[in-house]
């Protein structure tokens, strides 16, 4: 389904060209769950954003290929790429607090992809969105439909993000550190939900995290990144049990504790 070949991202807006991602390779089958781990700044999020086509810095040079069902996403025009964004491919982000538009009701944001890729009537859209919200584990979707983002808890917002990303049942969901900003208990619930969605709907998930333990709970395979490069990859249990690289050992042993990241409920 997905075949990434030699994906590189180079920024030329600093004094020295900065290589954020270098020759990233990955194959994924439909319905597979693959993890990408690495410390912050290792290029894992950048890989995801490049794949999704949402790096808007004009000084970012993206090379290589990302074949999705045989079509190279990286060579598509913006207009062609938009056909895929939010439809076949979708993404959820680390900060559910700020990733939702504060002045748009949650329901409208969940159904937005349906609206953009316009296939259904308003009533059908709403029914589909409510159904997806239930799938994403939102209790009482009707009530959440009319809520403003700031009225929801962090976990609920992330579920709303998941619903918005899944509303068109994409083939691939990119989850960019979706639980990092959440409390541990909420984190586990969200992971369960993602697992469920993968099982029930067959959505493949590319799961980005700095936490090997989380990746182990969810993924079948894992890719370890350091300073923009893949240093190790393989079935998750194998990598966990017999890490070849010191860096991977370090990631396993350090068992990063979750510090609550910046960006609480307030947006200035």
């Amino acid at each position: 389904m997905l075949d990434i070949r030699d994906l590189s991202v180079v920024f030329t807006d600093r004094k020295e060209p900065f290589t954020a991602v270098e020759k990233f390779n990955l194959q994924m089958d439909a319905g597979e769950v693959v993890g990408v781990v690495g410390e912050s700044g290792s290029g894992k999020s950048m890989t995801a954003h490049a794949l999704m086509g949402i790096i808007r810095n004009p000084r970012a040079h993206i090379t290589g290929q990302a074949l999705f069902e045989g079509v190279d996403l990286l060579s598509l025009s913006p207009r062609q790429l938009r056909e895929y964004q939010g439809d076949e491919l979708s993404i959820i982000f680390q900060e559910p607090m700020t990733s939702l538009n504060p002045t748009m009701r949650v329901g409208r944001q969940v159904e937005e992809a349906l609206r953009i890729h316009g296939r259904l009537s308003p009533a059908e859209r709403k029914a589909r969105a409510l159904e997806t919200m239930a799938l994403a584990g939102l209790p009482d979707p009707e009530a959440v439909w009319n809520a403003w983002p700031h009225e929801l808890s962090g976990g609920m917002r992330q579920r709303a993000m998941i619903a918005a990303a899944l509303v068109l049942r994409p083939q691939l969901l990119i989850a960019d550190e979706p639980t990092t900003a959440l409390d541990v208990t909420i984190q586990m619930q969200i992971l369960e939900t993602l697992k469920d969605i993968n099982r029930k709907e067959g959505v493949a998930i590319l799961f980005i995290s700095h936490d090997l333990a989380v990746v182990r709970a969810l993924c079948s395979r894992v890719v370890v990144m350091k300073e923009g490069r893949i240093v190790e990859s393989g079935p998750v249990d194998e990598v966990f049990r017999h890490p070849r690289e010191d860096y991977t050992k370090l990631l396993i042993s350090s068992r990063p504790t979750r510090t609550k990241l910046k960006g609480g409920a307030s947006r200035d």
Binding site: I54, R82, G86, F93, Q109, A113, I116
Partner: peptide, 12 residues
């Protein structure tokens, strides 16, 4: 961040 989300949904 919400702008990034909006782009990811396929908005021009």
């Amino acid at each position: 961040d919400y702008v990034r989300t909006a782009y990811s949904k396929g908005n021009a």
